[in-house]
Nucleic acid binder design. Structure first.
Lengths: 136, 136
DNA sequence: CTAATTGCAAAAATTTTGCAGGACT
DNA sequence: AGTCCTGCAAAATTTTTGCAATTAG
């Protein structure tokens, strides 16, 4: 897969490169855990003890504006972020909250009751219990 | 449609009937706005000035345990609740947050990458702009 | 009478914001 | 140099919790 969260890519967008942002980019690159803001913060605070939530949220905000990250509303307890922005689908574990990717093409036609809406996107969300949780 | 949020139904589940709960039941009955806890609280505080969030959340909790209400993880800014629990799908407006029901049967087979998961449910979430917001 | 429920208020958890100082181009 | 970014702390939102008083069955 092509690297997208790179310095070059970032510079092209006219964004300033800071060590904190680079670390966030690096953390997100190819990340498939659908981290929350706190996950990102926790993952980086060792290397950047001064890292603040403001920076994490600010960077995520910028990345979302540039289309490099999507906010997920799948986990009702907190926002999760997905650096994989092409259309794909998800599974969420009702017990541990783990979110898995589902890379599949579902043939879905716009339903008639939404004919007056401007549909931008759709996604399928499966829910249930992940392999780790299903036998407990 | 059969009434489900009735006193009889509620009593059968062994739950105590209080005026507050009745008001919440009545508010939810046939509600298609996918209200948040605050929406419910606001809708009822005139009639029940002493109504508290504890009661709203507590009642929703109980209703969820009994399978009469589902928590939606569609609106990433807050939890929304749906008194319509049979399988159906949704559209959310990216601008105003309105959630519309989509009553359709999508033919979706469990994808291979989830073969080791215990899938309980799935739903399709469309997003975009509702009729009110799409031309602004 | 007993156990469940309410309301209040405090706390917890998550996200947003203002602003001064600092870093990037 | 000028603008954007960071970090801190405070605030705003949403949700949860403990507990005493009340109420339903």
């Amino acid at each position: 897969m092509e690297k997208r969260h790179t310095i070059e890519f970032y510079k092209k967008l006219g964004l300033k490169i800071t060590p904190q942002r680079l670390a966030i980019l690096e953390y997100l690159e190819n990340n498939r855990d659908h981290p929350s803001a706190e996950d990102i913060y926790n993952a980086l605070k060792d290397r950047f003890p001064s890292m603040s939530f403001a920076t994490v949220y600010n960077t995520l905000e910028v990345l979302m504006e540039k289309g490099l990250v999507k906010e997920l509303g799948i986990d009702s307890s907190k926002k999760r972020f997905d650096p994989v922005v092409h259309t794909h689908h998800h599974f969420i574990c009702k017990k541990c909250g783990r979110i898995l990717d589902v890379e599949r093409n579902f043939e879905i036609t716009i339903p008639p009751e939404l004919k007056d809406c401007d549909i931008v996107d759709f996604q399928v969300v499966f829910s249930g219990f992940c392999p780790n949780c299903k036998n407990k």
